[in-house]
Amino acid sequence: MYAFDYVKPASVADAVKALSAEDAQPISGGQTLIPTLKQRLGQPSALVDLTKIADLVGIEAGSDSVLVKGATTHAAVAAHEGVMQAIPGLAKLAAHIGDPQVRNRGTIGGSVANNDPAACYPAAVLGLGATVLTDRREIAADDYFQGMFTTALEEGEIVTGVRFPIPEKSAYAKFVQPASRFALTGVYAAKLKGGVRVAVTGASESGVFRWAEAEAALASNWSPEAVETLAAPAADGMIGDIHGAPDYRAHLVKVMTKRAVAAA
């Protein structure tokens, strides 16, 4: 790692101020950022630690939504009674990110800010139609994710939380890439008051996306059989690497959608 200053602000306002310095960058769990910096893929002047800001840690489960604050760890989401009751699919997703040590450090804000094309949380955020809260605005999931490692966040903008609407039912089905623990393909399917949403991670070159055909089929018939009648999405534009070819991932999208609906 190149040398950097370490800043530990006590409030979101102080963090925003610290981030206005040239090349300053937030750090939360560091589970993505520290390995990246070790490879010298970045050279921040300062790392601004968000995890010591009391306002950024915690979960508020309300009657129609659940707010997970930005620096809340995956382990905290997985173990939270309110989340388990209101959105069990979300608690289970968090419980299967990486391994216990990654879950003890990694945070929801870091995950959605990073928007790794194989990460789990982006599927839940898009699949539940959640709202990403920042220090300056609220961003609907449909506007937030803009392709792999790309989001609507501006320079120095902090994810302060994610607000998830409570669905009638929902679940995440992840086909694990066993070496990295990330999703080779993962699908979050949700039946909400406003309709059905199906979000896919791990598969597309354009990052997390909604599978419109499955949403339409499931809206009239919420069952794995409704998905069975569909053709898999086009292999064109799917990720191809040593772990799986594009048509294999396209096939997995269909299989994991069925599994998510069955599990919901």
Partner: peptide
Amino acid sequence: GACVVHVNGESVKACSVLAVA
């Protein structure tokens, strides 16, 4: 995971945590 230690009772990978943090 060869570097796992406990921080405030929770297991973490010490190679992925800054000492200052």
